[in-house]
Design a protein around this nucleic acid. Structure first.
Lengths: 125, 125
DNA sequence: CGGTATCCACCTAGATACTG
DNA sequence: CAGTATCTAGGTGGATACCG
């Protein structure tokens, strides 16, 4: 009820802070990669296989961005063939709870939202 | 700690459910509009004035999508000049707490993330 | 006042081919 | 194995002009 006083956090500086984060979190693959890495440290190929539909290019690009933001660590071993492992940093792990909160909301409301969309779309056009 | 068992919610069906929602939540203006409407019901022009940088087109488009998803209600009064008011529905209000959780995370980590980016970007290139 | 319609620049992400 | 390079289609959002 009294949450309104806190939504200024979202509107804050015209929304720049929150949007800067959302831009990272909400692209097509970030959430999926973070959630997958929550399972533990993992090689490139393993990630590639466990995230259906992602291309090599997008996996690389998204991992680079996550690394840049300090959410994921990258460890390359000097072997042949090469081995590279990715893992969530503490900062990356700290993203999981709020992400879960959003996921929970999404799951809980997805049926209702879909129903609303269907209704809206079939109104006489 | 034991959150891993729950991240399957995010990965779920290959991420389709959560991404369908994220696509709505995470576009350029949705969060800002929802946060602004948390203040109370509001006219089109008032929204336009209180969300810096948004165009009429994007305000209309985003409001239509929110209405379609049942997160915002639209009430048009048969007057001249026309008056249209927007308000969060109960479903729309229910989005605020998880959105705040994410905003909180964003604010708390934005300095560290920016620092990581700076470091990453200045590494010999 | 509260929109639509139109045009356009940019960016994202997919497909494909190639490499240390 | 773990990438990089290149090309391109499609979508998002801004600018501008007009309308009931």
């Amino acid at each position: 009820m009294e949450q309104y006083e806190h939504t200024c956090m979202i509107r804050g500086d015209g929304g720049r802070a929150i949007r800067g984060i959302l831009d990272r979190i909400c692209d097509k693959w970030t959430m999926l990669i973070v959630a997958t890495l929550d399972e533990g440290r993992m090689r490139f190929t393993h990630l590639h296989q466990h995230i259906p539909g992602i291309s090599q290019r997008m996996l690389t690009l998204t991992l680079r961005n996550l690394e840049r933001d300090g959410l994921v660590s990258r460890t390359a071993y000097a072997e042949v063939p090469p081995r590279v492992e990715y893992a969530l940093t503490d900062r990356g792990k700290s993203l999981i709870p709020p992400a879960l909160a959003l996921a929970r909301w999404a799951i809980e409301h997805s049926n209702d939202i879909q129903a609303s969309r269907d209704t809206y779309d079939t109104q006489d056009g």
